[in-house]
Amino acid sequence: MSDVDYDRLQGEAQFGDYVALLKPRVMSLVVFTAAVGLLVAPVPVHPMVAFAAILFIAIGAGGSGALNMWWDADIDELMKRTRGRPVPSGRLTAGDALSLGLALSGFAVVMLALAANLFAAALLGFTIFFYAVVYTMWLKRLTPQNIVIGGAAGAFPPMIGWAVATGGVSIESAMMFMLIFMWTPPHFWALALFMRSDYDDAGVPMLTVTHGRRITRRHILVYTLLLVPVSLALAVSSIGGPVTLVAALVLNAQFLLGALRIARRDEAQAEDDRYAVEKAVFRTSLYYLFLHFGALLCDAALRTAGWV
């Protein structure tokens, strides 16, 4: 983005700027995985309760996104990928983001307690706290393990959905958690590899900054190898089935192949082809998770129909 383009971003706040504060792309993954967790649970949920629960989970996710943008406004301004966000671009103030984030987060937790149950609401509240405080305010600027530990925040939504239906947790919901938890590091490290100097400029101790790209490439492979058995275990669990098993085999083969290609590269190769392999693995990681959870949903539908 040129300086001229950046200057054009300054100006009056629009409705879309408030939407952007909620991180809608991240919210879409939260909503989808939470909905799957709810729908594959063994306890049926009234459609209106299910709709309300997913709505309040989405609002909570949006609130935590706004809190993240409030706290990270200083480093967002230094990164090309994030400098156009509403706060660093000057279209909204940090106070706007803080107020919206607190209001939406509190509203979501209270309403989920009323619509579903206290346990699900408490788990949502803990997830917001973990993302906004433990990850954003503490881990992100402290340790290269920020995305490893902080990735737990993005792994809780299917557990929240499951808790809406059952009022608790189980081995199945923990396995869905672990799938996202193990997927998060290779997903973000692939992004960090081709974003080059963004994290250096912002002073964020991402693994690429503290240990270098070669070590990061090896870590991507290690975490992908650890992800494979988690995925296969989920496929043969009580909420898995033939669709999930086929999806796991195909998606893991593709993801693992990409991780191997990344691990074998050096920076000269990466520079020569403008990080094409890293970008391809990042794209693969995006639909890896959506298709895994979509497969779980398909197997749940097959069980309901009595076909498996």
Rank of each mutant, 00 (worst) to 15 (best):
D76N: 10
G60K: 12
G62H: 08
A61T: 10
A52Y: 04
A73V: 10
S64V: 09
E77V: 05
M48N: 07
L67A: 00
V49K: 04
G60H: 13
A66T: 10
M69L: 12
D72S: 12
D76S: 09
H46R: 12
G63P: 07
G63I: 13
I75W: 01
D76V: 10
I57R: 01
D74L: 08
E77T: 10
V45I: 06
A61N: 06
I57H: 01
F56V: 04
G62K: 07
A50C: 07
F56L: 13
S64Y: 00
D74M: 02
E77L: 12
G60A: 13
G62P: 03
F56K: 04
G60Q: 11
A52S: 14
A61I: 11
V45T: 13
H46N: 13
M48K: 02
A61M: 08
L55I: 14
S64N: 05
A73Q: 14
V49N: 00
D74T: 15
G65K: 04
A58I: 12
V49M: 10
I75H: 03
A52L: 13
L55M: 14
W70R: 13
A52K: 06
I57A: 03
G63D: 05
G60D: 09
I59M: 09
D72I: 06
W71R: 12
G60L: 11
V49H: 00
V49Q: 13
I75V: 15
G60T: 12
P47D: 02
N68L: 03
L78Y: 02
V45C: 07
D74F: 01
A58Y: 06
I75A: 11
G65F: 01
I59P: 00
I75S: 09
W71H: 15
N68I: 13
V49W: 00
D74E: 15
D74Q: 14
M48D: 14
I54K: 02
P47E: 00
H46D: 15
A52W: 10
H46P: 09
M48E: 11
